[in-house]
């Protein structure tokens, strides 16, 4: 397992500090000025952070997008230039329809439906509300959290749709794409109707509370200096039903292959020159 260098960690910290203070991640030149290292070092660190599922960098496929997860972007939304930070997960680096309110103040935008549920971890002791819309009915969706724990959500039938199986996350060299189809649906009926016209999108539905447990298990403590994504394998297996990664066959639960990595993912991970910053743990 590779480890982030201290410079990379300082860059990560600066990015998150900037997001918490201003709502948006800094540009590469701003990082160079602040951290006082060469631009090549910053670029290399950002590539590492992208491989560690901490940031996602803008690419040609997402340049000049007019919609985000099926919703029209606000007119004053400024899409990052190619190579700049697109996501400082779980935050989006541009205005979109997923607004984040912290103690009533709004200047942050969330990345995807899955990450929204654990976002309050960044604002200790504060009530964090994420407001979005159902992808099909356009009904308002609201998630209330505090200290990383999801306290409430509306509507009560809310489901999170994850649109790309883990094994296909790196089919192209594009770490933004796995989140492109993570959406909210106000009910299962809404999802089924949407799915009728979007059958090409592979789907997995997960309840918000399950998603919250999953995010807390693997991505808790992102603002920490030494954070890296940690997958506690035994813990996940022991609690696989509570984190929504199961299917069942004749009442017998088993791990949904949707959430399993495949050889192609691992091969592409190295093909696109990412290092393995994800820590595998037992518990």
């Amino acid at each position: 397992m590779a480890k982030f260098s201290d410079t990379t960690k300082r860059i990560k910290k600066y990015i998150y500090d900037s997001v918490i203070e201003t709502g948006f991640a800094p540009k590469i030149n701003e990082i160079v000025d602040e951290i006082k290292v060469a631009k090549e070092v910053v670029l290399s660190s950002l590539h590492d952070l992208e491989g560690g599922v901490i940031v996602a960098l803008q690419n040609e496929a997402h340049a000049n997008i007019k919609t985000f997860m099926g919703e029209k972007l606000p007119k004053d939304s400024v899409i990052p230039d190619i190579g700049e930070i697109f996501y400082a997960r779980p935050f989006s680096n541009f205005m979109n329809h997923q607004k984040v309110y912290v103690n009533g103040e709004q200047k942050w935008y969330a990345e995807c439906a899955l990450e929204c549920v654990g976002l309050s971890n960044f604002f200790p002791g504060k009530e964090v509300i994420v407001r979005s819309v159902c992808s099909y009915t356009k009904d308002p969706v609201e998630l209330v959290g505090r200290d990383g724990v999801l306290l409430d959500y509306k509507p009560k039938g809310l489901l999170i749709h994850v649109g790309k199986p883990l094994r296909r996350w790196l089919d192209e060299n594009d770490l933004i794409a796995p989140c492109d189809n993570n959406r909210f649906f106000s009910s299962k009926d809404a999802y089924l109707e949407w799915h009728e016209s979007n059958k090409e999108i592979t789907s997995c539905l997960i309840q918000p509370i399950q998603a919250n447990r999953m995010i807390r298990m693997i991505a808790y403590g992102r603002p920490r200096f030494d954070y890296r994504l940690r997958v506690p394998i035994l813990k996940m297996i022991a609690q696989f039903h509570t984190i929504g990664i199961t299917k069942s066959l004749m009442g017998i639960p088993y791990i949904n292959p949707f959430w399993l990595p495949g050889p192609k993912l691992i091969r592409n991970f190295y093909k696109f020159k990412y290092k393995s910053f994800i820590e595998l743990g037992l518990w």
């Binding site: 300082r10 918490i20 200790p124 403590g221 200096f225």
Partner: peptide
């Protein structure tokens, strides 16, 4: 230890 990991603006 947690404070040092999360405090902002100390750089």
């Amino acid at each position: 230890a947690r404070y040092l990991q999360t405090v902002r603006g100390i750089t």
